[in-house]
Design a protein around this nucleic acid. Structure first.
Lengths: 141, 141
DNA sequence: CAGTATCCCTCAAGATACTG
DNA sequence: CAGTATCTTGAGGGATACTG
């Protein structure tokens, strides 16, 4: 099924490695709850959106829950879905650094109080930032 | 061209949000240098691989450099390419947590000495780990 | 070894109309 | 509002043969 069944990266890519899934997750994290909400934020075609939401639900990244207001059902991230936050953030960091000209307008990350998050410390082991110069990957066994 | 030109996540996905690019980057980080090298590790079709390598080079994630041995040219990650390391690692973490059964064999992350990296601290602001409960995203201006 | 050139095929994706 | 149904298109991807 996959090219490399033992690689966690490959499995993750198998789940979210398409054009829309991560953007749907991004919007869920930014507060999107309803079908139309997702549709308008992403601009994705309705049938594709329905398909992606199904796939994401099948992989347990999102679920539909009873809305606090009562009768509607809204989408919500599961724990597995929320765990993609680190992926979204690192993608965002990369995009900011390497996919924008200086001064180009861009959306920003804010905290609960609406304050712009100034800078993010990248993934680290212990306290030391991790770079590709210092690590590699090896198979099991 | 993109659905959301102001979102760094969307731009990043536009560059690496397909089935193969991140796996090619992964393998470059793991030591892949030659065309055949990439082809065998990923299992990707040769024409598609050539296309992806071109695209990645066009976006300045990889380049071809003179091999130390002399006459061959090998692929190498640029700084922008190396900066994807955090993305790869967070994807890997997510895959480990949510795409494997307990006890299923998997590849692991090792450092230069070949030691298995025990645990990774996720993206953080200052010292506090970041979760999707505590942040959201807002447009510019 | 490092690609290029073809051929083929599936499915992702878009547009739009429709239904409970 | 939340999807489903249908139709069409094109890109993504695979297999294989070929070339410098």
């Amino acid at each position: 099924m996959w090219t490399d069944p033992e690689c966690p990266v490959a499995r993750a890519v198998d789940v979210v490695g398409d054009r829309w899934s991560l953007l749907i997750i991004r919007d869920a994290m930014a507060g999107a709850r309803s079908f139309t909400d997702f549709q308008q934020r992403t601009g994705i075609a309705r049938n594709i959106l329905a398909d992606r939401l199904r796939k994401l639900a099948a992989h347990d990244l999102i679920t539909q829950v009873e809305a606090p207001s009562g009768k509607r059902r809204v989408y919500a991230l599961t724990e597995a879905g929320k765990d993609l936050f680190a992926v979204i953030v690192t993608l965002r960091q990369w995009g900011e650094r390497h996919a924008f000209e200086a001064g180009e307008p861009r959306s920003v990350l804010v905290d609960e109080q609406g304050e712009v998050v100034p800078e993010l410390v990248p993934v680290a082991i212990g306290g030391a930032p991790l770079t590709s110069d210092t690590t590699s990957v090896r198979g099991p066994g």
